[in-house]
Amino acid sequence: MNHSYVLAAGTNTDEVARETIFWILCFASIGAALAMILVRRAVHCAMMLAVVMLALATMYAMQGAPFLAFVQIIVYTGAVLMLFLFVIMLIGISSADSVTETIKGQRMAAGLVAIGFFVILILGVGHAALGPATRPTAANGTNNLSGLATLIFTTYVFPFEVTGALLITAALGAMVLAHRERTAPRPTQRQLAARRLESGHMAPDPSPGVYALHDAADRPALLPDGTTSELSVSTVLAPRGVAEEPPSVPPQKEPEAITAESGHEPAPSGRADT
């Protein structure tokens, strides 16, 4: 069985199946693309892009490019998009775009030009003599992969080498850009320990609260007197306001005197627990 052309061989049922798949994928990808440009949170945009990429991978497979389909999934969706997600996590998890547009007329103009561009391209495409899908020629070799390999390493060997160099350059560039110069010498372990002693806060931060109902990093831990401990939630989460309030617990009246004494050691750094 010729696997490379398994989808190109078309019988009637194949044809219908292919059409159905195409139209489903078409709407899915268009919908995902529209959602991508409309949703507020960056993570949701990344997810929508992933949907589009996967749809496109399937379409590559349908058109007799299985290698490309898998490369799309592995490299594009799996590596590039994940890289996007890493960066979103590092930078902008909470930076949601506001709805109002700062530049006057930008949206209107963008929409108009986009529609115009679309019309022009569709006209061009419609006018072009795009024939039907043809059988692959004999020069393509026995299967898709070896055909691609032949092309890459013969006709397109120079672009191949150049893109190799480009990749190396990109890696170097990323290293240079992400590099942070130390302005002070690296503190040794001894210095770190001394710093800890002076801060008055020698013990590790408490873990986030773990309750029967909830178990998450954004829940603060409860102190003995019923108040939450800010130290237990990551400093990244707390300013975002996503740290949730613990379920209300009625404060106990009797150990008030003890609580007042034991729970309120004033910290010299000013980080009060209550």
């Binding site: 530049i103 930008q106 103009a109 030009v113 986009a114 561009f117 022009i120 006018h127």
Partner: peptide, 24 residues
């Protein structure tokens, strides 16, 4: 020249559309 990259991008897009129109 209002300093916003997005309006520059809009101009580029518009220019590209014009070029394509010319070609067609």
């Amino acid at each position: 020249e209002n300093g916003f990259v997005r309006s520059y991008a809009l101009s580029m897009f518009f220019g590209a559309a014009a070029l394509v129109t010319l070609l067609l």
